[in-house]
Amino acid sequence: MRTRTFVITGIVVALFLAGFVSYYASSHPDGLEYVAEQTGFLDTAEEHDAAGSPLADYATDGVDDARVSGGLAGVVGALVVLVLAGGLAFAVRRRGDSSEEPAEHRQPTGAGKA
């Protein structure tokens, strides 16, 4: 499989998970939240500063249908992460250096290192 095909397939799978499968995720409290509740410090949690965000708690403001609201929030979030993390990776990457390439792509011994 070509790298481009692989990456696009992976992104489609991720968008499907965030946009569709997430509706079926468990809504029970996660491990930390549950432990905090049981041991009695969950009430020390403060109101979130971004609680007014249009996507707060993985629901889209103004969309009533839970499936669409959560799915849309998931897809938007996944795309934002893709752009930020992908952009960061491209900004940080080495350019035009093949030292990590598999051995068969390297120059014959000696030719590369003068």
Partner: peptide
């Protein structure tokens, strides 16, 4: 980019 996106999506699946 793909791995970050995948981690985000999968973290939604409690």
């Amino acid at each position: 980019g793909l791995v970050a996106t995948f981690v985000f999506s999968t973290q939604m699946l409690n």
